[in-house]
C-alpha cells in the first residue's frame, strides 16, 4: 500500500509486470475511487464552465465526454480532467485525487454568480476502470451489460443486479476499456462480480507503466501549475475560439515555449526517474525527467522529459544523469507502443 493523493492505495496485487501483461492481453480492473467527480447543473452552466475549462463545451454532445484542462491565469495546469455532458445543462467533470479539493474550491469560486450549482460527488459515487481487449466480453459475462455499441469518449446509463451505473468508453491504459461510475455499494458489487469472473485486480504500479507506454501524462509529473499545455504539447485539447481563464498566457507561451515535453527511450532496461537531469554530451543541463520506467510491453526503459526546444526533435540524442552515470537517451514519438491494426 502507498499514499497517493491523500488515499491509501494498493501499489500491486499480483505484481506490476503480471498485472500489466493481463491488461495488454486480457483485462484488468482498477479501483479508481480516489478520483473525484463534481456535478454542475443549471442554465448558466455552459457559459460559466466554458470560461473555466479549455474544452470546447459547445460542440460536446449529451452522451459524450472530453479531455482538457483547468488552467490558472498564467496558463499553469491546475488539473487535467475529463468532463462528461450529462444533459443540456448538466455536467460531470472527473478530476485527480490530489487536486480535487483545490479544483472544487476554484470552480465554486469561478462559477459563483452564474445560474448554476456545483456539488461534490465524493461521498455518493465511486469509480472502477475495466481495461483490456476482453473488456466488452467480461462486462457482458459478469454484469450483463452490453456496451459494444458505445464509441470512444461516449457514455451510457446501464444497470446490473438492480444497481444503476454510468459507463464510459475511456481509460488510462492505451487499451480498449471502460470506466464505471456508481454509488459505492454498487461499485463494490461490480468489483466482486468482475474479479469472480477472473478479471485481474491491478494497482497503481501497473496503472503507471500502462499509461506511460500509452503516452498519457500524469498530473504532478508531466503537468503542474508551473507547466502549461503549450510546453506539454497538449494544445490540441485547448482549441476553441472563445475566452477561457489562462488563454492569453497560453497563446503567448505556445508562441515561444521555454521547454517542451518529449517522450524518450533509453538503450536498455535501466530506467531514468522523475527529477533526474537531462544533459548534453558535454554535461550542459538541458532539461528534467518527469516520468521514467521500464516499459514491460515495449521491452525497454521509456519516459517523459521537459527539454529546451532545440533538443526536442524526434531522434535527438542526449543523456540522463542518474547520479552514477550518463544514460544515453533518444527523443521518441508517441505512442511508445505501436499495435498492429491501429
Amino acid at each position: 500500500m502507498v499514499e497517493f493523493g491523500g488515499w491509501d492505495m494498493p501499489l500491486q496485487y499480483a505484481g506490476v509486470l503480471a498485472e500489466h501483461a493481463r491488461v495488454r492481453t486480457a483485462a484488468g480492473l482498477f479501483d479508481t475511487s480516489h478520483m473525484d467527480a463534481f456535478w454542475i447543473e443549471g442554465r448558466g452552466s455552459l457559459d460559466a464552465l466554458s470560461r473555466v475549462l479549455t474544452q470546447d463545451l459547445r460542440t460536446l454532445a449529451v452522451g459524450a465526454c472530453r479531455y482538457g484542462f483547468l488552467l490558472n491565469e498564467e496558463a499553469g495546469v491546475r488539473d487535467d480532467l475529463i468532463i462528461y455532458r450529462m444533459g443540456k445543462h448538466a455536467w460531470m467533470p472527473v478530476v485527480n485525487a490530489g487536486t480535487a479539493h483545490a479544483d472544487f474550491a476554484w470552480m465554486e469560486q469561478q462559477l459563483a454568480g452564474s445560474d448554476c450549482k456545483i456539488s461534490d460527488l465524493r461521498n455518493s459515487q465511486c469509480k472502477i476502470d475495466l481495461q483490456g481487449p476482453e473488456t466488452m466480453t467480461l462486462l457482458a459475462d459478469a454484469l450483463g451489460i452490453d456496451a459494444t455499441g458505445l464509441r470512444r469518449f461516449r457514455w451510457m446509463r446501464a444497470s446490473f443486479d438492480g444497481h444503476d451505473c454510468i459507463i464510459s468508453r475511456t481509460g488510462y491504459t492505451g487499451e480498449d476499456g471502460i470506466e464505471l461510475y456508481a454509488e459505492p455499494r454498487a461499485v463494490e458489487a461490480a468489483w466482486l462480480a468482475l474479479t469472480a469472473a477472473g478479471v485481474q485486480p491491478c494497482g497503481l504500479g501497473a496503472r503507471d507503466t500502462l499509461r506511460l507506454e500509452a503516452g498519457f501524462p500524469l498530473y504532478g509529473h508531466e503537468l503542474d501549475t508551473s507547466t502549461s499545455p503549450a510546453e506539454a504539447n497538449l494544445m490540441r485539447y485547448c482549441q476553441k475560439d472563445e475566452p477561457f481563464i489562462g488563454r492569453k498566457a497560453l497563446l503567448r507561451r505556445a508562441a515561444k515555449p521555454a521547454e517542451l515535453l518529449v517522450p524518450f527511450r533509453l538503450e536498455g532496461r535501466q530506467t531514468a526517474r522523475h527529477g533526474q537531469t537531462v544533459k548534453r554530451a558535454d554535461g550542459t543541463p538541458i532539461g528534467r525527467v518527469t516520468s521514467g520506467s521500464y516499459g514491460p510491453t515495449v521491452g525497454q526503459a521509456i519516459g517523459f522529459a521537459y527539454v529546451t526546444p532545440d533538443a526536442a526533435a524526434p531522434g535527438t540524442q542526449w543523456f540522463i544523469d542518474n547520479g552514477r552515470a550518463l544514460l544515453p537517451a533518444t527523443v521518441a514519438t508517441l505512442p511508445f507502443l505501436k499495435k498492429e491494426g491501429r
Partner: peptide, 8 residues
C-alpha cells in the same frame, strides 16, 4: 522491491 527489471 517487486518485479526486478534491471541489474547492474
Amino acid at each position: 522491491l517487486g518485479d526486478i527489471t534491471y541489474i547492474e
